[in-house]
């Protein structure tokens, strides 16, 4: 039975947290593991969408979420948060991006700040590792998945389709009524013509 550490106050992450952290074998030991993750987190914040091996993406995602949530909770005037950002972001201009771009973007998000997709393996026999795409939400690129707004089974699409049908039926009825009216007119005119002849 352990007592929770109360010296730090953290925000709850809106992603699934793995019960065990991955080890990422490295000649530098556990420090090398963090170095690898640092590179990935920096690249994610820089490019906003990256493709990489699945385990590293899944692990780096948790660290990226923690970094953003701390930046939102404490801001750039908090010493230990700034130290943490300085450690995790290898390129120092990304620290500015974190506090000036990403924090305002994610401030009111009630959901996760990142998205993780599984990507197909590369078609070469040497690299048969699981691949993934990791991206920040609200990035400027076109969406990876097809939007669901074209799905004909969605309720609003069904309703729109019915409304269209009804509108078409109404228009057809109007046109038919017009044609009928014209025909009746011609019919009623015909006997008059016959008389004049």
């Amino acid at each position: 039975m352990n007592q929770a550490d109360v010296s730090k106050l953290v925000s709850k992450l809106n992603i699934k947290v793995n019960p065990r952290l991955r080890k990422f074998r490295s000649p530098q030991g556990p420090e090398g593991r963090l170095d690898k993750l640092r590179k990935t987190v920096t690249a994610l914040f820089k490019h906003e969408r990256i493709e990489l091996n699945y385990p590293r993406a899944d692990e780096a995602r948790m660290y990226a979420e923690r970094l953003i949530s701390d930046a939102i909770r404490y801001g750039d005037c908090h010493k230990s948060t700034m130290e943490m950002a300085d450690y995790w972001l290898v390129e120092k201009q990304i620290v500015h991006k974190l506090f000036k771009v990403l924090v305002p973007r994610f401030q009111d998000y009630g959901i996760s700040y990142t998205k993780l997709y599984r990507a197909p393996k590369r078609p070469i026999p040497e690299d048969q590792y699981e691949k993934a795409v990791l991206e920040l939400r609200g990035n400027p690129y076109p969406p990876l998945l097809h939007g669901t707004h074209n799905n004909k089974n969605l309720i609003h699409n069904i309703l729109l389709e019915e409304a269209k049908k009804a509108y078409r039926a109404k228009k057809c009825a109007e046109i038919a009524a017009k044609i009928d009216a014209v025909e009746e007119k011609t019919k009623s005119d015909k006997p008059v013509d016959h008389c004049t002849q």
């Binding site: 953290v10 925000s11 947290v17 952290l21 948790m62 660290y63 923690r66 970094l67 943490m84 995790w88």
Partner: peptide, 14 residues
């Protein structure tokens, strides 16, 4: 600096 180790030792504020 291990953010997730810190996270796993604490209970989130919410």
């Amino acid at each position: 600096y291990d953010l997730m180790k810190i996270y796993k030792k604490t209970i989130p504020a919410e």
